[in-house]
Design a binder for these strands. Structure first.
Lengths: 216, 216, 216, 216
DNA sequence: CATGAATGAGTGTTCATTCAT
DNA sequence: GATGAATGAACACTCATTCAT
């Protein structure tokens, strides 16, 4: 069972009319809306489809959100609730292993995560119309993420495991193959699928190959 | 003899007509359409705006394209007319220099090129609705591009300048920072701008750092 | 000598494409327009199709007719140019034979004539929007036609060949089967075709059976 | 617009929303659509006018019908719900009286019935674009109707009241004056009105005059 | 609270009409 | 005269939003 998108579970509540508790209804709508927005983009998403997916009536959405745009903003906000855990600080071990662990998490949580890819699609597709979208993500996700990468890098340099690298200035470079994999997956739609296991290995190999001091 | 409801005729008012050469009109529309589609996405683009941008009337579009979707497809097709020039084959020099040149072109032609970024935005945003979109790009651009990268890599390995690398299997990894830069630029909209000169240097530095055999 | 080509005096005919004389062009358009109007009705007829059928450009129509409605009216007017020849007055023979001849002409010229059926279709379809359409036809065709029928009937009664009949008041009744045949043909579109020869015979038989005094 | 029959809908009430029982709404639209289609033909009918006549908003139509064409087809189908009752089988009396009764019904139900005349107008005007239209009517109305006429004729012949007639083969001929009256009424639009009472008498008189064996 | 029928502004598309060539 | 590209009003159809139930 995937934790990623629990929305598809058509929870078989035996309630004939018994509605879910109100707090849940809002989440229900947000989840459905996210899937629709991520799949079709803002403009092409019809609230009717969101309602259908959420298993409610069209008008019900308006009991929880003023209009389509507010719903979209709420979706965006709802997506960043799960913060990155302070990573580097809690891990004690060799920097390469740390980096490996970090990448592994990135692939599991982001690259392989349909929900996360949907967010990236929305970011790319809708940041023109909704600039705050990217602002939020820069502040909440991208910034902290890159900071964590840089910390690992720093630690590796400090410990002598890594050589100095311009990547300190642009930690994006270290994770870029992951981003490419996301974009690739988004675009290909399954027709030119990457072997993500091998790809991640190559990614790690390549990055460590550049960071680590070479044998004699 | 009078018709009962001849009322519907609201004679159009005069406006300069047929001033542009006909052959140019189609390109004009394609260019305007590309800008609108790239900026707003397929669904959110109004043909009226395309027409306005092209400096023509809404109906004129339909003289050149059957409908909105065909216009979109035509735009997509028009974007790939400039083929990648056969690159590696014509260049004779050290592999690192070749790679540097290749990257430099990628940044100039793609990353720094608003048109190219627009294409990427369209690919990400619309490949759900228009799968052929990505198929075309895989075949025409991405495939040949990666092939070129792999050739350079191969040549470097053959000449002993590069060590063997898993990147041979996934040449994407070598250019991934460029892709990230594109996505970054698309998302940021100018608010978190990358210093592309420094970034490209870091990219090159990093990649060569991984590919090249190290001095003692 | 034809009146048409005696007028050429000034114009040295520099026509590169050698167009037909102008008078013909108008007829050409009218003919094409009639076919389209009769087939599709006024509203559903596109001037582009009329032009195509006439083998000319769309704009050319406007050199001969102010607008679609005037074209339609001109078509209507053009259709009644061939007057009914004064029929009963010129024929001298037994009334039944006269009636037979009259019906025969009706079937040949009207019922079997696609053009005439097209006119009927237009009358039925467009007389709501163009009331004058039927006025013209009442005056030019239907009225004279019925008058002729009544004359034959009168003559037959006067000569003792026919008995007195209420059909004198409503001569329509005598030709009604012909009208039905027209409507039937218009509606059926070839799928429930009437055997018009047999049908006309039955029509004549029936009408004469009612008009003629019976044997003992 | 036709002032003739818009009278039926007196729903001038500007009620905001959802006031009518849902089941009724569909009939309401069908009725309004029929009147518009019958008056203007398919192409010239605007759905906005249908909506206005039905006292609803344009979009509401689309809650009940997929598009204009489906609405049209539904209208056509709705028009044939009232079948001809099995006529001849239930009537026991002299054939002439039976025929008189039959004609009387025809005039009351069809010739004098604006709705029925509207159907005929649609048949004539739209059977080119909608061939099924006439197929349906042939099967449901015209065929059974003619069969009934033929039955009466047969019975009269069997009882010796009628003489043998070619009309057995073409029962259309017996009712043709009724069809002519419909077409006449459709075309005239009230300007050359037939005296239908007298006309029907003449029709009956004429037909019986042909069918019945004559005195001595 | 929830519903979903109803609304009507908005957009894609057509086509009568114009006019530079 | 003849052309047909260009125009823009008009109309079919969609969908965010409302509100009586």
């Amino acid at each position: 069972m995937k934790a990623t998108d629990s929305v598809r579970l058509k929870t078989a509540k035996p309630f004939p009319r018994g509605r879910k508790p109100k707090a849940h209804r809002r989440e229900q709508i947000l989840a459905a809306a996210f899937e629709e927005f991520a799949a079709n983009g803002y403009a092409a998403t019809r609230l009717e489809d969101v309602a259908k997916r959420a298993g409610i009536a069209k008008g019900t959405i308006y009991l929880y959100f003023q209009d389509k745009e507010r719903l979209f903003r709420a979706v965006v906000r709802s997506l960043i609730q799960k913060r990155l855990d302070a990573f580097a600080g809690t891990f004690h071990g060799p920097a390469p292993a740390l980096f490996r662990e970090m990448l592994s998490r990135m692939y599991t949580r982001v690259v392989r995560n349909e929900r996360a890819r949907g967010i990236v699609r929305l970011l790319v597709a809708e940041s023109g119309k909704f600039p705050q979208l990217s602002d939020i993500y820069h502040q909440e996700i991208i910034g902290p993420g890159l900071k964590a990468v840089r910390q690992v890098l720093k630690r590796g340099i400090a410990s002598g495991e890594f050589r100095k690298s311009k990547a300190l200035e642009f930690p994006q470079i270290l994770v870029a193959p992951g981003v490419l994999a996301i974009v690739w997956t988004l675009i290909s739609g399954g027709r030119h699928r990457l072997d993500l296991d091998a790809y991640m290995k190559a990614h790690l190999d390549f990055v460590l190959g550049s960071l680590q001091k070479k044998r004699i």
